[in-house]
Every structure is written in structure tokens, then in C-alpha cells.
């Protein structure tokens, strides 16, 4: 009798496992075939001379080891793209996160009325289509008819040739990106703020802490993990900069001053069909993103300890 019970239980467990695999198979299959496998294949592709001839016929493909990477190191356009991307991430990223935090603090302030209305307004750009709003901003940045220059002149500042100068094109892309992205971060940070117990603020006030001291010693430390999450996600997203310079500065103009690594990958791969070389570009981006993420997580752990 007990032996029968055990076999019945075993059978039920086996049936449950079988059902689980049937439920998992389609979803995991899609993710493996169309996401994980291509990422692994990107590395293999980067070790080949896959070009227009190989696109026509696979038999023209040769393994060339790390030649693509050696070529990258000697390619000034690649270094330009890498430098531009770091400029965008290192300047645009912190500015986005700081502005998101400021917006979250204002939204969550006890004094704020019509909270929902302001939240919706700040968040609206986050759901819009990047290609469409980048088109809008291209006209706003127009040196003569653009409303941004008119606003600058109205407050007494000189007009700027936003998209036509190597100096201002990247700041123009950064401003667009901040506008587009700060709302989503704000929502996450605002939720983090809500989870900080009010008693901590009361204790700080009893100790005579002012607004600034409360922010530094209560809000920011308590917000730690949320802050890290927002920072990491912004960083990963910003390293993949693509559609903004594609539309706003016509694929990296002027003089490649807004050419990003992802844009270089697209041009090499899908315009010139140098797919082996493009895969090496993509793989460098992959390593950079992974390293940056690890660095951020490590640094925040050290900060806590």
C-alpha cells in the first residue's frame, strides 16, 4: 500500500514536470532561437570576413581570427564612435538620473497638489515614438525657424547652430534624450521615495536636520537599490544610442560628431554588408555594456559596506 502511494506520487510529480516543460517549450524556444543564439553567433560572426560576397554565397566565408578586432583598433572612425558614445552616456546619463530624481522629489512632496496631472505630463514623452519626436525636435532645433533659438534670443542668449556644428550636435541629442527618458525613471524613483518610512524623517527633524540634510542622510541612502536600478537601466539603454542620431543628425553628422557605436554597426553591417566587421563592433559594445554594469553594481556595493 505505501509503495503504491509512493509510485502514485512519483507519477504525479512526473506528470507535473512534463506539463511544465510543455508550457515552457514555446516561450523558451523563441528566446533561445531568436535572442540567445544570435548573441552567441555574433561573436562567431566577428571572427569571419563575412561581406557582400558571403551574403551572396556562404562558401565565400573565411575564418580570420581576430583580424576584425585588430582592424577596429586602427580605425579612427571606430574610436570616434566609441568616444561619442561615452560622451553621451557619461554626460547624458547622470543628467537624466539627476533630473528624474528632482522631478520625483517634487512630485512626491507633501505640498504638491494635482500630483497625478503633473506625473502624467512628465511621463508622456516616455511612451512616444522616438523616430516621430526626434523629427519634431529637428524642427525645434532649426537655426532660423526653430522655437528653441527664438526662446534663447528672447531671454537674451545668442542663437545656436544646434545640429550643424560639431560642438552642439551631441548636446542637442542629450537634451532630446533627457526629455524623452526622465519621466520613466521619475515614476520608479517616486515609488522608491514612497517606501521610505515617515518616522525616519521625523527622527531627522528632531535632530534638527534641514531639507538638505534630510535629503543627504535619509532619502538618498534609503533610495540606494532603486537608484542603482535606474542608473544601470539608463546606462544600458544609453550605450545603445541609435535612433536619435539616425533621425536628428542624419546618421551621425556633422563630421561624424554624433556617430554612435550602434550606428556604426548598422552602417557597416546593413549599408556596406561588412557583417563580420560590424559583428566585431557589436561585440565590443556588448563587452563595454557588461563591464559598465558590473562596475556600477560593484561600486554601489562598496558604497553600502
Amino acid at each position: 500500500m505505501p509503495a503504491d502511494g509512493i509510485t502514485a506520487m512519483k507519477r504525479a510529480a512526473r506528470a507535473e514536470a512534463r506539463a511544465a516543460w510543455l508550457f515552457l517549450a514555446p516561450g523558451l524556444g523563441v528566446i533561445f532561437l531568436f535572442f540567445l543564439l544570435p548573441i552567441a553567433a555574433a561573436f562567431l560572426l566577428s571572427l569571419t570576413d563575412f561581406d557582400l560576397y558571403a551574403v551572396a554565397d556562404w562558401r565565400n566565408l573565411r575564418l580570420i581570427g581576430f583580424d576584425n578586432y585588430l582592424r577596429l583598433l586602427r580605425d579612427p572612425i571606430f574610436w570616434k564612435a566609441l568616444g561619442n558614445t561615452f560622451y553621451f552616456v557619461l554626460v547624458g546619463g547622470p543628467l537624466t538620473v539627476v533630473l528624474s530624481l528632482a522631478a520625483a522629489l517634487m512630485i512626491q512632496s507633501k505640498l504638491t497638489r494635482f500630483r497625478g496631472l503633473f506625473r502624467t505630463a512628465f511621463f508622456a514623452p516616455a511612451v512616444t515614438t522616438l523616430v516621430a519626436v526626434a523629427t519634431v525636435w529637428r524642427y525645434l532645433y532649426h537655426p532660423r525657424f526653430g522655437l528653441i533659438n527664438h526662446a534663447l534670443q528672447w531671454i537674451g542668449l545668442p542663437a545656436v547652430d544646434w545640429l550643424g556644428s560639431t560642438r552642439w550636435a551631441m548636446p542637442a541629442i542629450i537634451i532630446l534624450s533627457i526629455w524623452k527618458n526622465f519621466g520613466a525613471n521619475m515614476i520608479i524613483l517616486a515609488a522608491g521615495l514612497q517606501n521610505i518610512p515617515e518616522s525616519l524623517y521625523e527622527a531627522a527633524r528632531l535632530d534638527g536636520a534641514g531639507w538638505w540634510a534630510q535629503l543627504r542622510h535619509v532619502t538618498l541612502p534609503m533610495l540606494g537599490p532603486t537608484f542603482l536600478f535606474v542608473g544601470v537601466m539608463t546606462c544600458i539603454g544609453y550605450f545603445q544610442l541609435f535612433a536619435e542620431p539616425f533621425v536628428l543628425t542624419r546618421q551621425g553628422e556633422p563630421l561624424n560628431s554624433t556617430l554612435s557605436v550602434a550606428l556604426l554597426m548598422y552602417k557597416e553591417g546593413f549599408r556596406w554588408w561588412n557583417m563580420g566587421y560590424a559583428a566585431a563592433v557589436a561585440f565590443v559594445l556588448f563587452v563595454v555594456i557588461l563591464a559598465a554594469t558590473t562596475l556600477q553594481v560593484r561600486a554601489s556595493r562598496r558604497g553600502e559596506a
Binding site: I31, L33, F34, F35, L36, L37, P38, I39, A41, A42, L45, V232, I236, F239, Q240, F242, A262, M265, G269, F270, M275, A278, A279, A282, F283, L285, F286, I289, L290, T293
Partner: peptide, 20 residues
């Protein structure tokens, strides 16, 4: 494993995915 793969940038998959 899936959670860890969440940080993989999708752009890296584009070239091989196109060939596939």
C-alpha cells in the same frame, strides 16, 4: 539564467538574427 540574460543588449543580436 534568464534573469541574468535580461541585461544582454538586444542590438548585439541584430546581425546574426538577420542572417538567420
Amino acid at each position: 539564467f534568464l534573469l541574468a540574460a535580461l541585461v544582454l543588449p538586444t542590438q548585439v543580436a541584430v546581425l546574426p538574427l538577420f542572417l538567420l
